[in-house]
Design a protein around this nucleic acid. Structure first.
Lengths: 154, 154
DNA sequence: CTATATAGAACAAATATTGTCCCATATATA
DNA sequence: TATATATGGGACAATATTTGTTCTATATAG
């Protein structure tokens, strides 16, 4: 059904919940509680989001995750790609794959990238901030205000 | 990876190959030969495309499939939906599904339809004709010329 | 030194997709 | 009318993918 994976769906939900308090330090445990997802699953996703550079992580006691950038500067495409890898509508656009039944005499090969780009653009156009705002319209203001005098790499 | 299903990918390939001869009668067997896909798979897909109203079918000897409309009037979204069902990025947008872990307290529910629409729009913007044209620039002309005096419901 | 928290990798279970097969129905032709 | 050919519909096993969990390693505050 051309569906987003559950994992990236979860990731967007998690990020949205975290975004309600965009400056806080979030642990896998607290996010699991807020979201209703299990701790192991949240842990797995947090790692991915951190690895992708969307979250900063701190290990050890009092460790956890903070936003690496302003939620308004994070788009949905970034979250999805962090979890599911590059958006590739067809196997031939996925560089990690090599095999294709049709291979060279495939008549559609060249046209897919147009669609692929269109989908990616659509996903890039929506920011995490837009997901958060209905819940908390002050997110952006909060984040930017606080960060003026701090080390946030907005 | 937010990927198209193989089936709908195959369907686009098949339709593209058929589009090289847009007025001809195509059987599952001939399309299987041209595409390199197996006959049972092609049969299954042809049925779906026919049921969706993209192809007209004729049973019995000399039966087969013809385009139900001008390939330029068929968009990629139609082909995908014929095979995979409605484009629903998340489970909560899929009306055939009911269960969702988060259900009512899901913070992202309302925003997804924006993205969903954007993706659908992107897929609607590309026509089958655009897939065919690099192979055969005359498709549109051929189809329309022939249909002027015929029963084609263009 | 201990408790807490993330990093990374490997794995079993659950789910979804694929590909195939069967039988029913329609139709042109001998 | 009998036969060969073609699609229609549904069921199914095999396969692939995704999901969710668990384990061990590493980092750090107190």
């Amino acid at each position: 059904m051309m569906k987003l994976s559950k994992m990236s769906d979860y990731a967007v939900v998690m990020m949205t919940l975290m975004g309600a308090d965009p400056l806080a330090n979030h642990t896998a445990t607290t996010v699991a509680e807020k979201s209703g997802l299990t701790v192991p699953t949240v842990r797995k996703l947090m790692k991915m989001l951190s690895k992708a550079g969307l979250l900063n992580s701190t290990r050890g006691v009092n460790g956890g995750y903070t936003f690496a950038k302003n939620p308004n500067m994070i788009n949905v495409s970034e979250i999805i790609e962090a979890v599911d890898g590059p958006i590739a509508m067809t196997t031939c656009l996925d560089r990690t794959q090599t095999t294709c039944v049709m291979d060279s005499h495939c008549p559609t090969k060249d046209r897919w990238h147009v669609i692929n780009d269109a989908v990616r653009t659509a996903l890039q156009a929506v920011t995490l901030g837009q997901f958060i705002e209905p819940t908390n319209p002050l997110v952006r203001v909060e984040f930017d205000e606080e960060c003026k005098d701090n080390a946030c790499n907005v």
